[in-house]
Amino acid sequence: MVWNKHDYDDIPGTYVFDGETAHASYNINKMLFTFNTEDCRDEFEADPAAYCDEFGVEGDFKECVIQKDFLRMLRLGCNIYFMAKMAIPRGTSVQDCGAAMQGITTEEFQAKLLENRVGLEEKLDKVGGYWNG
């Protein structure tokens, strides 16, 4: 009774959503999946704790859902795409979560992303054949 080791386990700062994670976070992801439907979103909003109970979302998972602690939800193994169904309508973007994971602001996170833009045209010209504006 052991979970397989994987050659992606040692990629720094990286958590791969695999069977082990999906198994542990099944109930919470199942609950988040229902947020595709407006009626379910309203039902959750009316009584988050009762809604968690309905799906067997317990312990740390339940606590962070009620506290809307999206970062902790991710750390506990929630799937990012399912988590987004709860976080984005509440004003927390996937970039906000990425920034928080690194302990920087979203503006700093976006500035780091924009660094990839520097010298891009020159790089593409060097490789050749790219549309370049």
């Binding site: 720094p12 990286t14 990425g98 920034a99 994971m101 690194q102 992303l113 891009l120 490789v127």
Partner: peptide, 21 residues
């Protein structure tokens, strides 16, 4: 791209271009 973890925000331009080629 990587959406989560402390490595979130990773973009590898050189690898992307190599993949396209």
């Amino acid at each position: 791209h990587q959406l989560q973890g402390e490595r979130a925000g990773l973009i590898n331009v050189d690898f992307d271009i190599e993949c396209m080629e």
